[in-house]
Amino acid sequence: MTQKLLEIKELYAGVADGGKEIVKGLNLTINAGEIHAIMGPNGAGKSTLSYVLTGKSDYAVTSGEMQFCGQDLNALKPEERAALGLFLSMQAPVEIPGVSTQAFLKYAVNAVRKYNHLPELDAAEFLKLLRGKAKEFEVSADMLKREINVGFSGGEKKRLEILQLSLLQPKLAILDEADSGLDIDALKIVSQGVNQWHNADNGLLIITHHLDLLKQIKPDFVHIYADGRIITTGDMTLAEELEKNGYKNYVEMSK
């Protein structure tokens, strides 16, 4: 029997404290081993969906259900969702001056291990793990010493996100515009990293505008997302058709 990772039923959500509704009746199930892509026009609320799932306090669920590995996501804090294995690679990773990237990665790895009742890694163990992975994603020792994302190029930021994916080994990863600002080489590193991590036990939700990333990470399902819900679902051919004809027809359908 396939394991359900994420199950969203008739989800409505919006800006916290009674603000604008942005997710309007979303249904989506992601099983272990599956790769889903969400495509949609600008302003459709795709990034908002990623924040609702990961628990950013700016947004609130008004009705509906979202289950992650059998637990009600809405009852969990962002850090609990992360520790259970939900990962979000942000479109614009946040810069944090004053905190070294390496120290942050150790905090994160050990926080997740602690939550899952695993012994925390000591400095030497962590360094060994980090060095191997950093080499894979071409994250230099210098980058690790620098403050989190401060002065990083677009490509460096995305490589750091994928390094985190690889270190934290989540059950479900949401990649929000993981391809934005990447040149061909960086795109290759990112997609190779994702493909290497992906296996029959975990799942992936890719939010993107472009075919480039989807050609590298082949989705099993492609959803067209407009006006806060999925309008239609297909496979890679749907994405290819979109590239030719645009979203126009689908946006009409959503009205």
């Binding site: 950013k56 306090s57 962002p78 850090e79 979000l88 905090y107 997740v112």
Partner: peptide
């Protein structure tokens, strides 16, 4: 910044 750290599992 707080959310970024939380989203990586840091309480």
């Amino acid at each position: 910044q707080l959310f970024y750290l939380q989203s990586r599992g840091i309480p």
